[in-house]
Computed example of a mutant assay.
Amino acid sequence: MPHRYLNHRPRSPGDRTPANVARWCLASVGWAGVVVGQSARHPRQAFWHFWHIVNEPRQITVLVFFGYLILTWGGASALHNPPNTVENAAGVVAMFMLSAMFVGGGLIGAITCLPGWNWLERGGVLLSGFAALIYGGLAIYLGATSEGNRDLQVSMIFFSALMLAGRGFWIWNRPYAKRRDDNTTADG
């Protein structure tokens, strides 16, 4: 699929009609299919095609992608086998909703961070950030009402929430298209 389809993405609120967004998403998925299709014949070339699709700064974006994957894995693990102390404190339904927020935020973030779809990644950051704050509040509550030290757990949870807030600040004012200028390039 030619690059001209990837360059026609919603740039202003007027361009974000459902038809334009759907057309752009289908063109992007088609381009990803071309990259995957090339990987069977030319793995190195397919890697470089994929690498140039990743949003700048590429190394940071890949790290954020793996962070979202870890968040999704943790939420899916808690959906399958929730922690007993948190489930007893919050309840079964609240623990399910908290785990679903982690899974949803992680999936949205992982899917949208690599191509630079910042306007969609914001939802993943918000969902994951609110889930981390709720989970941190539960850990503080459990630390105050039960025996044991939960300071390490609370510090890691709030560190994660701060990193998600940093990612949110990074992407919130970005334009809808990929940013490839001197302010965000790692090469230049």
Rank of each mutant, 00 (worst) to 15 (best):
164 L>H: 01
159 F>D: 07
71 L>I: 08
90 A>F: 05
46 A>C: 02
175 P>E: 14
161 A>Q: 05
117 W>R: 12
89 A>T: 09
34 V>D: 08
74 G>E: 09
38 Q>K: 10
92 V>W: 04
116 G>Q: 06
73 W>D: 08
37 G>W: 15
184 T>N: 13
53 I>C: 12
20 N>W: 02
123 G>S: 11
108 I>G: 02
163 M>Y: 01
179 R>E: 11
95 M>R: 00
172 W>A: 07
31 W>N: 12
160 S>V: 12
21 V>G: 00
5 Y>K: 09
180 R>P: 09
144 A>H: 09
12 S>F: 11
127 L>I: 14
30 G>Q: 12
99 S>K: 03
151 D>F: 07
123 G>L: 10
171 I>H: 02
124 G>F: 07
40 A>W: 13
30 G>S: 14
149 N>Q: 02
174 R>Q: 13
133 L>Y: 04
155 S>R: 07
55 N>I: 03
128 S>P: 05
55 N>V: 05
52 H>D: 15
130 F>R: 00
61 T>W: 02
98 L>W: 00
55 N>Q: 15
159 F>M: 14
19 A>N: 07
71 L>F: 06
163 M>H: 01
48 W>Q: 11
96 F>M: 09
177 A>W: 07
146 S>F: 04
27 A>V: 07
138 L>T: 05
167 R>G: 01
143 G>Q: 03
129 G>K: 00
46 A>H: 02
109 G>I: 08
35 V>Y: 10
55 N>M: 08
18 P>L: 13
